[in-house]
Design a protein around this nucleic acid. Structure first.
Lengths: 159, 159
DNA sequence: ACGAGGCACGCAAGAATTTTGCGTCGCGGC
DNA sequence: GCCGCGACGCAAAATTCTTGCGTGCCTCGT
């Protein structure tokens, strides 16, 4: 399924634009990249059917929601069993407060980013997710003081 | 500017839906939350003008793009000068390959998530961003082996 | 060299969605 | 008890998206 597709300059331009704002209208996008609305449309459907464009989502401002505090958690597992890793993945995917999860190289096995309403809930969530797992050897929770940048946009070389 | 606004159950339901998929059409959304299309529309514009809804963005699949490798970097600064921190923030905001940046409590000052095309470029970017900064005391780059979960959705209690 | 096929494009008609105006209803304050 | 505010649904109007069709360009094969 991860099948790379060839992209030209216009594709990269378009993808950069919709990664910043996906509400802009086919005609308007077409004007910016030098294409008609229908040509833009056909490219977008190509991105969708190829799996490149996974979807479009609304981005909320955590500050307007009141106390939304991200935390970064470093996790080390005991054993390297594939089944245990799969179970861990499933728990991360199932928990809505977990925004991101990467398995990494080095002395830690995972980096998890989760969002809670304050330190107390952050500790409680970490305990439930990691202390409750007998296969988690240790974890270290780094509470975020401030969010400087927050996005998912992938860089596209452009030339 | 971070001014919290009161939300009812329908608001939370709507926000949850558009955080998962913002392409769904006012009528369809209205059907799911039990409102007319225009009522849904009015709520969405309220989210926008209040700053709660920051925008809508396209989410791409890194795997279809070929080699897109995230790395998590832990950074410690030398001094706590506000001006130096501001300069650091500006550099993070200006670099498209930096997806996320949090200032954190503890022995590290920042967590940075950046995306590159492989280990070599990851090292090069880290060196340019952090080794080149005389105020960065030390940094540790953790290359991601696999992305388990990747999103920005904020949890909304719902009741 | 030249013609056939494929691919992407622009244009325009048709379909669908979004936007806006208007009348109604329920709730709280005067 | 009445008035005004806020939110709603409905429907018309405006905009946007979708689709079919004809054209041009590039490539490949004859």
């Amino acid at each position: 399924m991860p099948r790379p597709i060839p992209l030209d300059d216009i594709d990269r331009h378009l993808l950069t634009l919709i990664q910043a704002d996906s509400t802009r209208g086919l005609h308007e996008l077409g004007e910016e990249v030098g294409l008609s609305a229908s040509a833009v449309q056909r490219r977008l459907t190509r991105y969708r059917t190829s799996g490149l464009l996974r979807g479009e989502v609304a981005v909320l401002d955590p500050r307007v929601l009141g106390g939304a505090m991200p935390s970064i958690v470093l996790v080390a597992l005991d054993r390297e069993s594939a089944a245990l890793h799969a179970a861990f993945h499933a728990r991360m995917l199932a928990e809505p407060r977990v925004q991101q999860c990467y398995s990494i190289a080095g002395q830690w096995d995972y980096v998890v980013v989760h969002v809670t309403e304050g330190l107390a809930e952050s500790r409680a969530l970490s305990e439930r997710l990691f202390l409750g797992d007998p296969n988690v050897r240790r974890y270290d929770t780094l509470p975020a003081v401030e969010t400087i940048k927050r996005g998912l946009a992938l860089p596209l070389p452009e030339e």
